[in-house]
Design a protein around this nucleic acid. Structure first.
Lengths: 226, 226
DNA sequence: TGTTTCTTTACATCTTTTTTACACTCTTTT
DNA sequence: AAAAGAGTGTAAAAAAGATGTAAAGAAACA
């Protein structure tokens, strides 16, 4: 049995990380770990987790700040871990976009159950990991792209851009979102990267790159995959 | 302020129902109550709630059974209330489709926060903020505008103006408000911008731009979307 | 070393926004 | 009732800005 959900653990205490890792690996999740807030933010961008488990007691950034920064560009489910059972804190975090809140000590079975609930929610919006429209097919699991049954080879960056569009197909994805997700927080105002890669993608997946039917630009906003 | 989410409370204890009702009504939710499991199932079908708060200690049916029967036909979020903090029970219920689990006694603020989280999840899958009136349809999530089923392409500024009107549809939005929201605080007295963009919008979304039926001018005040 | 990919640079092209100009419709004033 | 003025509608230009494209240099990889 394989479970292809990726989970990011953000916690500075090694003992807790060990406990979480053991339980989650045992349940066949793919794990990535970060030991500080900044590290968590970076890994969230590079690892593309389906769920984040975030401990509040971090050394550099407040867990609350990490959550706020995450919510600027992603809606990935976040489960908060904490020792404090303080109600105002809970409310603040839940309203800031957290999906669940667990007070230590917690039973591992309950954690796993709440992980399943969070992933179930995500499943509702994500549905199928295969996107198909016209002659274009993108398999996010296998990392494969086809145009009219013929496989197309994409570079890493090209694929990152495309997969970001696929994940929100139909909707406009803003330039800021794309840049942040693919090149990281540094490249906020370097939209020319984007133009170049959108251009290369179009050359590879559009029948007529100058009259795109899949990757539509929304001037002043971003791009949209249809 | 109005909050149009409907919440069904299923609980046999009147005191708890009173407490929940008070807090939820105060937060402007629409409430429906059931005092037994069977009653709850019936009301869930007739009332079409956006969220169900289900107490486990029911006289006729086990709360667990109610949840299982609900899940046969609906995915409406369910928050479980209980006195028992028993982990296996939690896991069983969460895996049976419950979305959250609160142990009594709980703070009212936390309950409300978890209600908001559950409704937020629901918002992800459906209930997208779509404005529809006559032949005009505006999807604020996808940033799409349709006139008689045909998609209309709007520039960024045009869309900003329209979405501002949509958000307060029915009401008059003053020129000052529109200018401030779209062009920023600088452009307070440059109402000609507005006239030009209202004009362009009408050309795009009105059947007869000179006799607008959607974007109505309120002379001396501002504009109104109907 | 050769190949691939990523980044940088440069410029052409297109769209959108702003500016400018004028016509229209009311209401108020004479 | 005609004239004036304020607010509004419309059409076109000029200006600004965003996007598309090609190609060369730098970095990574084998």
């Amino acid at each position: 049995m394989k479970n292809d959900s990726r989970i990011l653990i953000v916690d500075d205490e090694i003992s807790i990380r060990n406990l979480l890792r053991m339980n989650l690996l045992n349940a066949h999740y793919e794990i990535c770990e970060a030991s500080s807030g900044q590290d968590g933010l970076d890994k969230a961008a590079s690892f593309h987790p389906h769920l984040i488990i975030l401990d509040l007691g971090l050394p550099d950034l407040e867990g609350f700040e990490v959550l706020k920064k995450l919510r600027l560009w992603t809606t990935v489910p976040v489960i908060i871990l904490t020792v404090s059972d303080d109600e105002p804190t809970k409310v603040r975090l839940l309203d800031a976009g957290a999906d669940d809140y667990l007070t230590k000590p917690f039973g591992p079975e309950e954690l796993l159950a709440r992980v399943r609930v969070a992933l179930r929610h995500k499943g509702m919006v994500e549905a199928t990991p295969i996107f198909e429209s016209g002659n274009l097919k993108v398999d996010l699991n296998k990392r494969e792209v086809f145009v009219s049954e013929t496989q197309v080879k994409l570079t890493n960056t090209e694929y990152e851009v495309l997969s970001r569009l696929v994940r929100d197909h139909g909707k406009v994805v803003s330039q800021a979102q794309l840049l942040k997700q693919v090149w990281g927080a540094i490249a906020k105002d370097q939209s020319h990267y984007l133009r170049i890669y959108i251009n290369q993608l179009r050359k590879k997946i559009e029948l007529n790159p100058s009259e795109p039917t899949h990757i539509i630009t929304e001037p002043g906003v971003g791009y949209r995959l249809i």
